[in-house]
Design a protein around this nucleic acid. Structure first.
Length: 517
DNA sequence: AAAAAAG
């Protein structure tokens, strides 16, 4: 490590950093004048072609700290077919897409070919972009290696390599892939390496793949602790109890609540809660890794644009996602790993705003709550009395839940069961009148993803209609429906027809229709 | 007890 980049950041503006006029003009147009500490520290060195080790959390302006100097450096030279000039590795598809957006935003004065290589979407378009010659290649590791193995991609022309969120890659078991990829790229490259923390494995990686890096360390966004109000909320431990707790909480917060991310620990819970909220007329979307990629993208976009007020999500959304104005974070489940708590609540209180987080806790969560409090170094206040006052509803063996009703099945269980058996179980559950309404809303992940996807399609059709400004909606609708829809079972088609009733510009009506299903 | 990523 050569030097710590300590500069008088107060005095700095973007014009002092050595960026090209094209980049500066895009930065100005985006409304920024003053670089963040990580930007001020990293950009001058990155522009000189040095390796950079950036230690910074998300939300510190880290992305621009590599995007801006890369754009400046890319102005010289051209990309050749199948030989990208730069490569950015990201741990999740959403983060990769977010980086692409940054390149589009700040690269608007450049003529750049940007290729996004992520899983869950078709190869064709990605192949075409590679063939054309990519100046910027943004990828998740799996899909990148897939392209390489198919011979569509040569990495020996890469001039700049960015490894982002390295510690998260480690958590996700990507390090062997990262090492493989690093070894495919000539060592004459420049490497920009970012991590929020520096566990020993990551330090080893930097020693192996970075050459005399400039270390830029940014203290944790001091705002996190101060601008987020944190509360614990007691709840009975049954799913219907927790859902009711959540609904009451949301309603009580209504006047303060602009929008909220609601985190669950598991994908099935995301699906269940999502459906439940729709049923109760909440303006909700869902996001987890088993959903169709288009649905994932659309849900996130709609939440960002304010078309959805609530986003029920797994930890895929816990880190790094840049959604500027989230007023509330609800933890429907206490995260099992304390660090995840910090990442989750960090989705609110961003950019100097204040935020609120509520964590629903049951008796069995005590030890996880303790671990969180230990990690953050403070006790979290209870919102409305602690768990000693909570009343648990009946257990699973009780008549309330009914005989033989299986406990919530994990995905593996679901997969092992035949269709018929699952159907039988659903029928059994529906026969139980005394069971709370919300307790019945169980639905395999795939089906919810399917619903999500149909919503996405409707949304797409709607924007298409808006764009054309057509007078004849019915005709448009007919045209907009794909062949696949006609192949759907009648019940689904019916839903879709229902859903298009009252297709207005003001109200996303399709949501309420889905809720009636 | 989970999630993420290549199918």
């Amino acid at each position: 490590m050569s030097s710590d980049a300590t500069t008088a950041q107060e005095a700095l503006t973007f014009t002092d950093l050595g960026l090209s006029p094209k980049v500066l003009s895009a930065v100005t147009d985006a409304g920024y004048t003053k670089p963040t500490p990580i930007q001020a520290g990293a950009i001058p060195h990155a522009l000189l072609g040095k390796d950079v080790l950036g230690i910074a959390q998300t939300g510190t302006g880290k992305t621009a700290s590599f995007v801006l100097p890369m754009l400046t450096r890319l102005e010289k030279g051209r990309a050749r077919a199948r030989m990208p000039r730069t490569l950015i590795l990201e741990p999740t598809r959403e983060l990769a897409a977010q980086v692409e957006e940054n390149f589009i935003k700040y690269g608007k004065n450049h003529k750049l070919n940007i290729a996004l290589l992520i899983g869950g979407v078709s190869f064709d378009e990605q192949d075409k972009k590679l063939e054309r010659g990519a100046d910027v290649l943004i990828a998740t590791p799996g899909r990148l290696l897939d392209h390489r193995e198919r011979g569509k991609l040569l990495l020996n022309g890469v001039e700049i390599l960015v490894i982002d969120e390295a510690d998260r890659m480690l958590d996700m078991g990507f390090i062997p892939d990262i090492e493989r990829i690093c070894e495919m790229i000539p060592f004459t490259r420049q490497t920009l390496f970012f991590s929020a923390t520096m566990p020993p494995e990551i330090t080893k990686l930097t020693e192996k793949f970075l050459h005399a890096p400039v270390r830029v360390e940014v203290s944790k966004a001091a705002s996190t602790a101060t601008s987020i109000t944190q509360r614990l909320v007691k709840s009975g431990s049954k799913p219907w109890d927790k859902r009711e707790t959540l609904r009451n909480l949301i309603k009580a917060e209504d006047s303060d609540l602009k929008n909220a991310i609601i985190f669950c620990n598991r994908k099935v819970e995301v699906s269940e809660l999502f459906r439940s909220l729709l049923k109760h007329d909440f303006d909700a979307g869902a996001l987890h890794g088993d959903m169709d990629q288009r649905a994932r993208m659309q849900m996130l976009a709609n939440f960002r644009d304010g078309k959805l007020r609530y986003l029920v999500a797994s930890d895929v959304a816990a880190r790094g996602l840049d959604i500027p104005d989230v007023s509330h974070v609800f933890n429907y489940d206490v995260p099992i790993h304390a660090e995840d708590y910090v990442h989750r609540i960090g989705r609110t209180g961003r950019a100097g705003r204040s935020g609120k987080s509520f964590t629903i806790a049951t008796r069995s969560d005590t030890k996880y709550v303790d671990a969180i409090e230990k990690l953050i170094g403070t006790k979290i206040e209870w919102h409305d009395g602690d768990l000693s006052t909570v009343t648990e509803s009946e257990g699973e063996d009780s008549p309330r839940r009914g005989r033989g009703t299986p406990r919530r099945a994990g995905r593996k269980d679901e997969d092992r069961k035949g269709r018929g058996e699952r159907k039988k179980e659903r029928h059994a559950r529906h026969g139980e009148d005394e069971m709370p309404e919300t307790a019945r809303e169980e639905q395999p992940v795939a089906e919810v993803a399917d619903i999500a996807e149909r919503r996405v399609r409707k949304d797409a059709i709607r924007s298409e209609n808006d764009r054309k400004g057509s007078a004849n909606r019915n005709e448009q609708r007919g045209n907009g429906r794909s062949q696949r829809d006609h192949n759907r079972p009648a019940r689904h088609r019916q839903e879709e027809d229902d859903a298009t009733v009252g297709f207005g510009d003001d109200v996303p009506a399709f949501m309420r229709i889905v809720a009636k299903v």
